[in-house]
Design a protein around this nucleic acid. Structure first.
Lengths: 221, 221
DNA sequence: TGATCCATGTCAGCGACGTGTCAGCTTCGG
DNA sequence: CCGAAGCTGACACGTCGCTGACATGGATCA
């Protein structure tokens, strides 16, 4: 993992870099605000370690500019100024953690692990089938990127078909997963439901396998 | 947002609870390890504030058991023991931040905001959704830059929806996070509350997903 | 202590949406 | 070419959620 180290004190920077490299990180060192800003804005780092006491550009301003530009990498702030007001500012500016000098290298490593671990835990699982996407966390279905409004039953139908896309799903299985099930019905409610969903997702979204059930193709036909 | 406060010192607990409530959190207090373990394991909290110096069960062990059970809520540790080794232990055990006593209430609030913000994947403590902005630090909501006055319940509703903007939030989840966890009511208090907030934030601020819940869109429709 | 205000819950009425039913039509497979 | 499986549009009905008005109750202030 690449880590951007922003620190103007050569000795401290060297110590940190050494410790990081020993822990398997790939370190890039920068010592002034302008350069740091540019690198952080254009390159992708797994994490940034940022000393607030920089010449050239204020560290907090730097941080805010990154965040304003949508940069989301985890950031660990280092500083000699350890007043509570400073810390509050740093944290609210979008830092992920804050470490006052002097510190033990073990603690820096622990906090770095912590913020990296957290930032990687936010992958949203999105299922795709042809032009249709389903974001289960957001309960959002899109076709060609256009969000589609679905009723509760329709949504359940789509999620089950998407989860098992590329496979034929029997009416009975759908019945069980869409309606909660006690009774079997002799009605065609499911067929009607499929019809309504097709109207929203477009024809071809759900294929009929006469006598077996339905299938959502993984790729467009 | 519901916060679990685990602290056996009645005075400190009262102070913290008061500050949290003034900041719009819904606080549940627990003073012993057993109770804390049970609550944290069975209920959903937006965050936990955990004092390590507990009678009954060791705070670190408690923390590890939660994490082992897959509980992911952000946790802020409080302790009198401020050695760096302790801090490393706490963080590696799965705590999200660490605050040595004594501390300023402002700093506790800032760190709490920070870990909550991170756990939801946001980079900044100012959240934006369309023309609406929420500054959690200042407890300020604006629409088109115009500040809006909100009652406590309204504020909690808005913060929860803003934190989870772009995602559908069920009535049940809102119920838990806006009102405490007491009885389930069969009343329409929540709907009325939503109505009142809509009147203040403008129509379109909160979308209804019939049968699912409510959603605050990330961008204007 | 009483008057007033603000926050919040309750209730009733209503409009809109979701869903099942049914009849008739189309399509598929043999 | 026939029958069964599946599709579609229309309609009916119940429920969900919205609204405005009113009730309650705690805090504040004279």
């Amino acid at each position: 993992m690449r880590v951007l180290l922003v620190e103007d004190d050569r000795r401290i920077a060297a110590d940190i870099a050494k410790a990081l490299e020993a822990s398997g990180y790939l370190v890039e060192r920068v010592s002034n605000g302008e350069e740091a800003w540019f690198r952080g804005d254009t390159e992708d780092y797994g994490a940034v370690i940022l000393d607030l006491g920089l010449p050239g550009m204020d560290g907090l301003a730097l941080l805010k500019r990154w965040r304003a530009n949508g940069r989301r990498m985890p950031i660990l702030i280092l500083t000699a100024r350890a007043s509570w007001a400073e810390r509050v500012d740093g944290i609210d500016a979008g830092a992920d953690d804050y470490l006052p000098k002097p510190f033990r290298m073990e603690e820096l490593l622990a906090r770095l692990r912590s913020i990296v671990r957290r930032s990687s835990g936010h992958a949203s699982s999105v299922i795709t089938a042809g032009e249709i996407t389903l974001d289960e966390r957001r309960m959002k279905v899109t076709v060609h990127g256009v969000p589609i409004a679905l009723s509760p039953l329709e949504y359940r139908l789509v999620t089950h078909l998407m989860r098992h896309r590329g496979r034929v799903v029997s009416q009975h299985e759908l019945d069980e997963n869409v309606y909660g099930h006690g009774e079997e019905h002799d009605s065609n409610a499911l067929e009607v439901l499929v019809g309504r969903v097709r109207k929203k997702l477009g024809p071809g979204a759900i294929e009929t396998r006469r006598g077996f059930g339905y299938m959502m193709p993984e790729a467009p036909a």
